[in-house]
Structure formats: C-alpha cells, structure tokens
Nucleic acid binder design. Sequence first.
DNA 1: TATGAATGAGCCTTCATTCAT
DNA 2: TATGAATGAAGGCTCATTCAT
Lengths: 195, 195, 195, 195
Amino acid sequence: MTKAERTRELIITKAAPLFNTKGVAGTSMNDILEVTKLAKGSLYVHFEDKEDLAHAVVDYHLERLGKTVESTLSKAASAHEKLLAYIDLFMDPVNPLLVGGCPMLNFGMESDDTDQVIRKKICLFMDNGVKMICSIIKSGKDKGEFSTDWDAKEFAVKMFATIEGGIMMSRVAGDNKTMKVIARGLKKEIEENTA
Amino acid sequence: MTKAERTRELIITKAAPLFNTKGVAGTSMNDILEVTKLAKGSLYVHFEDKEDLAHAVVDYHLERLGKTVESTLSKAASAHEKLLAYIDLFMDPVNPLLVGGCPMLNFGMESDDTDQVIRKKICLFMDNGVKMICSIIKSGKDKGEFSTDWDAKEFAVKMFATIEGGIMMSRVAGDNKTMKVIARGLKKEIEENTA
Amino acid sequence: MTKAERTRELIITKAAPLFNTKGVAGTSMNDILEVTKLAKGSLYVHFEDKEDLAHAVVDYHLERLGKTVESTLSKAASAHEKLLAYIDLFMDPVNPLLVGGCPMLNFGMESDDTDQVIRKKICLFMDNGVKMICSIIKSGKDKGEFSTDWDAKEFAVKMFATIEGGIMMSRVAGDNKTMKVIARGLKKEIEENTA
Amino acid sequence: MTKAERTRELIITKAAPLFNTKGVAGTSMNDILEVTKLAKGSLYVHFEDKEDLAHAVVDYHLERLGKTVESTLSKAASAHEKLLAYIDLFMDPVNPLLVGGCPMLNFGMESDDTDQVIRKKICLFMDNGVKMICSIIKSGKDKGEFSTDWDAKEFAVKMFATIEGGIMMSRVAGDNKTMKVIARGLKKEIEENTA
DNA sequence: TATGAATGAGCCTTCATTCAT
DNA sequence: TATGAATGAAGGCTCATTCAT
C-alpha cells in the first residue's frame, strides 16, 4: 500500500461517519479536514471534488456493510440460521453497525432526486441484497429446510423492505421497540415455512 | 386570512417540494426566494430563520399526508377496504403524493442525527399512523370482518415499516416493481385474516 | 403635548441610552423598536431617518446634561461652591449621570470623522461648558472669592479637559480611582486660588 | 517573514485607519476588502472573524503609539525634557500621530460597554502610560531636576487625563486651540516643580 | 398617527476549489 | 505528495427604509 493509498483510505474512513450522519450536503470539506487533520489542499490530491469523495465514501459504506453481512452469514450453518442471523444483524438501529445508521436509507433518501451516481450504487447493492436472501431461501428449499411452495422472491423483497422500514422507524423513534416487533414477525413467518 | 398568513402559506407551499426533494441542508434560502419570487428580506418577516421555516414545512407535509390518508380512508366502506385503500395510496412511489417522496423517509433520515425537533415531529406522526392502522384492524375484528386472533399491533407495525421500506427501495430503483411485490404480500396477509 | 409629541419623546428617551451605550453605528432601528415596543413604521412617522433620530438623541443628552449641571450649580451659594459642585457631579463615571457615560466623549469620539452635525452640536456644548466655568470664576473674582490673578480661561479649559479625560480613564478602567485623584488635584488648585 | 505574516500585516495596517476613524461597528469587512484589494475569503484565512481582526488592530495601534512615545522620549536628554517632549507629541490632534486620532479615546469609548477584550487592552496600556510618566518624574527627582515634594503619581494621572481630554476637545472642535492652552498649563506646572 | 408586510442592499461568514511552493 | 494562502461565489441573515392599509 503506497502512501497515497493510505492517505486516501484515511480520508475515506474518517469522512464516512460524517457523511452518513449529516448527509453529503450537510458535511463540508472543512469538517473532513478537521477529522483527518490534513491540510486544505490535500483532499484534492486524492479526490477530484466533494462529489468524487462522496461516491468513494458510499462505496466504502456499502462494502463494509456487504462484508459484515457476508462474514456473519458464512458463520451460520444452515439456510434457516442464515436468515435469522441476517435479521439479528439489524436488530439494534439505535447502535448501528455503521455510525449514522443504514447507508442505504441515508444516502438513498438524500440522493434519489439529486445524485444519480449514488442512487445507482445503492440500487445495485439493494438488488444484490435481495438476491442474496432469495438464494439463501432457494438453497434452503433444495436442502429440505424450507417448504418448497414458499415464494422466495416475495419474502426476500418483503424482508428487506420491512427491515429497512423498521430501521427508519426505530432511528426516528430513538429506540428499538419497532425493530423488535418486526424481527419477531419475520422470524415467525420463517418458522411457518420451515419444514 | 390576512395578507401575512397568505404570504406565509405561499412560502411554505413553494418551499415544501424543495425541502422534500433536496433536503433541508441542500436547499438554500435563495432557492426559496426564486420559487416564491419574493425579495431577500421577506422570508424573515414570516420565519425566524431557515430552521423555523424547515419546521413549518415539515408540519405542512405531515398535515397534507395525514389529510390525504384520512380522506381516502373515509371513503372506504369497511375496515377491510380501508386497509387495501391505505396500501394503494402508496403504490406509486415514483409519482408520489408529495413531490420529493415520503416526508417521513426524507426528513426522518436527514434529521435523525441533526434536528431533534423534526425527528420528534415525524416520530409522533408515525406513531399515530401505526395506531390508526391498528384501530382499523380492531374495528374490523369487532365487526366480524377479520379473524379475532389476528395480532393487530404486530401487523400494523409491519405494514407501516414494509410500505416505508418499499417506498425507499422503489424510489432508489426508480421504478415501482418492489412496491408491487410488497403490496401483493400485504394484501395476501390481509385476506388470510379476513373472515 | 399632543400624542405625536408624546410618542416622539418616548422614542428619544428610550433610544438615548442605547445610542449612548452602543454608539450610533452599533445601534439598529430594530433595537429601538424593541425598547419602545412600537411598530416598524412608527419610527419614520416621527423621524426622517436614523440620522435624524440620532441627532435628536444627541440634543436630548446634551440638554439633560446641561440642565443637570445648571440645577446643581444653582443650588450652590458661592462661586467656590459651584466649582466644587461641578467637579463632584462627575466623580462617579462608573455610575454615570446618563446611562452609557458622558455623551460628549461617546458621540464626540464616534462623530469626529463621520458626522459633522453631531460633532458641531458637541463642540458648541463644550464651548458653552467652558464658558460657564469661566464666568463662574470671573464672578468669583468679582466677589472677592478668588485671587484676581487666576487665569480663568486656562483653568476652565484645563478643568473641563481633565474631567473628560478622567471620565474616559475611569470608564475604561471600570473603577473611579483615577477620577478621585483628578478631583483632588483640581480642588487643590481651586483652593490655592481662593482668597 | 512568511507570506502569511506579510498578508496579515497588510490587512492590519490597511484596516487600522478605518477602524480608528469609523469605529469597529462602523467599519465593514467590505471596507477592509476594498483597501487591501484582497478577495472576499482571504480575510478569514488570517483572522477568525471581525472581532479577532479588531483586536489585532487595537494591538497594532497601541504598539505603534507606544513605540512612538518610547522613541521620542529616548531622544530627550533629561527627565524635564522628556515630559515636555511627551506633551509636544500630542500637541496636534487635528493631524494626529495615527489616522483617526487617539486610539485610547476612539476604541476606549466604543468598547467600554461593548467589548471587554478591547477595554482591557486599553486599560492596561493607559496604566503603563501613567506609570511611565510617573517614573520619569521620579527619576527627575532623583537627579535633582524636580523638587522632591512634587506628587509624581498625581501629576502623572492629571497630565495623562488632561491631554486625553484636550485631544477629544480639539478633535471635536476641529482645531488645536484647546490643546495649546492645555500644553501651556501643563508645562507651567512642570516648570513650577523644576528645581 | 400608526401599522407591519415588503424591499433589496448589505452584513459577516463559509463554501468548494485552485495553485504556487 | 503535501501544504496552506488565496479565491470569489454563495451561504444565512440584518439593515434602514417604504408604503399600502
């Protein structure tokens, strides 16, 4: 890793919580200077402009989130356990995996009408997320864990949406009550389709 | 309605789509000047500062949303129909009721870490939304429309969260496919609990 | 006194301490609105503009100061007593006769390069002040209170300047020590010239 | 001297006459931009805000004044000559040492109720000024130039105050007549105490 | 005479960005 | 690669003032 790469990485990791907490528009390049303790011009050695940095930060967040999901699921023995583990990963929106909360919600809601590049990154990531849940269910069906007439696609979409909606509601409420109700409901539905 | 009230209303209604689309941080007072065609100082005759205006705009959005829901539901004959009508109301996130999309998602996600006043406004509004769905289900049970062992609270929370998550996903995707899958799933569950 | 005259008077008396404390440039028309509890336009019914009001306020201050001096001196029996009474009048700059301190210093120092009307008002007032002290000394000489070879003009100027300088120093210091030293010195010189 | 230091110095020296002439409240950052020919943001590279710049400007004025006094007095051979030289330094308030007049009067009278930092800077400077005069007299006594029963402290305070008051009066009058009377008086008193 | 909504110039300051070093 | 001084557009807001009511 060259020095340039290390500095670039430093900027991204320090900027990430800021962008995810205050939004892209709400975060100034100065805010980032402050937390990185870098000099004024240094940011522009590594990033073309604020937009460029914002895109890198979104990538970073999604990558971290993706890796966390992946590593968690890899530890689960069965498809059934994988689904439960996935849900548990998002059970505590008040103390979220990533400072500032779910980047799909944060960047998705800020960018939908303002930054098509970010919007598409998140869109792609969510597609993959749904597909992953889908394939877990399918593999569970193959292995005889789940009833074969369970609609994998529909449940995957619903589970994804419900968790995101639950995260939003819990963060706005400032407590996890909503998330708990939702987790219970999803898990019940999983059990109903478990052979 | 005095002249001042009319101007205040004008500012709010013109500013509302801007704030809901670009966010509070992403909207400048100049942007609002432009759409209202008012002079520089005039904004401050009616609002203390940008924050004050943002709060009024959030109130306006939530009020409009609330009234739309209310008037739609009032036209539905039964509890069963009310639930379906509620879902249908949010079926088209790409062409939303309010320009910019769902204000709960937009302002909720921007404010959760930055503006406690807005956060609380939305929290309260969502609480009421869930309670309303809850009471529709309960009255449906009373009238014999729904099976009595349906968990009203759980379904209300889940339905609310799922719709919000679905709106987010559809807006980020730029199409309503996700929302359709979700609507189908929710309606199926309603049918399963219809006597 | 008509209503208009009463309102005009109200504005002047309420604005006076503000101007004398924060200066003309440092006082806004809004500040004055606040203390008078009048409506926006009302100020301009009675005064052409801020400058016009400032001039009226300066007049008011000088008039009040003049009357206070006059009434104090009128109670003194002899020329000798008058001089001492005059000095005593300015012995407590920390708690001054007029809120904000000596208007000659305040408005004089602000206006000398910026407002010729105010400058001249104060110049005239100071001239009269010096002349008054001068004529007291002269009448004291006539009555045999003071030695006839005392230079009335020189002492009057010096006394006036020293008191003003002492006021400045005491206000900046935030205590009256300097003023006490000065008063003692002036009184000693008066005694030295008392027959 | 780095470039930053040079620019900082440039700003201070160009801003100094403006602040001393029109006051802090009466001088806008734009006024300073104009005389420095710098670009909008540049001021804030070197000063936190207007207040910060104002404080630097006050320091600059007092330093210049202090150095002028010092260098003038250092050229005087005796204590007696030093006192006369000091008085002569302030004999022409209409064409003052520093553009705008005496900074102690100008900033002192503006700040006494509004800016404690400036007030204290001036208070300290005046204290030192009085002390300096005091020590000149004392050393003059030691050397046998002045009569030993002359009250050094009292005269120092009086001389300082009288000169300041005289400056104020002369500037407001727009001519130096008052100052001349005062100088004559002070010098006479010095002679009376000269052995 | 009094009101207060409206005006637009101007306030201080921050913004993202550039560039000579 | 890193620096930090410099830029000027734009930020939110206040200013003195006007005018229809």
